[in-house]
């Protein structure tokens, strides 16, 4: 989806910067951070549609970051990037609620395809959430004040 907001998290600055440009060339709004802690801060400050998260990072690794993201309770989808597609990391990531994972190096088109898939899932979740909130407003108009709290 053109204009989707992507948070790219990878300790490899070259990859991060160049991938940011590639995604920006495809009209995505990309923010790049280089570690898990920065990613959590960014997500606390701003909403992102899709988080592209590297699994192997010094300090807070991809799995730990994913757990924190889930604890934030925000509506976003996470794509994992791994060095090689090992079953343990894949199972762990999917179990924790990641949308999918990709092995590095990955084709830009493949990544875009996954981002689109993740965005659709996130959009569905957002719509569902909105419907539930609207339903509450219809049922109880005073609830409108709580919508954006």
């Amino acid at each position: 989806m053109i204009g989707s907001k992507i948070l790219l998290v990878d300790d490899e600055e070259i990859f991060c910067n160049n991938m940011t440009k590639l995604l920006q060339n495809r009209s995505y709004k990309v923010t790049a951070v280089y570690n898990g802690e920065s990613a959590i801060k960014a997500l606390e400050q701003e909403k992102y549609d899709v988080v592209v998260l590297d699994l192997k990072m010094p300090g807070m690794n991809g799995i730990a970051t994913l757990k924190q993201i889930k604890e934030l309770g925000i509506i976003t989808e996470t794509l994992l990037l791994t060095g090689h597609g090992s079953i343990d990391s894949a199972v762990e990531a999917i179990r924790l609620g990641a949308y999918d994972f990709l092995t590095k190096p990955c084709e830009i088109d493949e990544l875009v395809e996954k981002i689109e898939g993740a965005w659709r899932k996130k959009d569905d979740a957002w719509k569902k959430d909105m419907e539930e909130k609207l339903k509450k407003v219809v049922e109880s108009p005073s609830a409108v004040f709580k919508l954006f709290v």
Binding site: M19, K56, K104, P105
Partner: peptide, 9 residues
């Protein structure tokens, strides 16, 4: 792999 990924991107 990271290096190759950097080259690739």
């Amino acid at each position: 792999t990271d290096i190759l990924s950097n080259i690739h991107v």
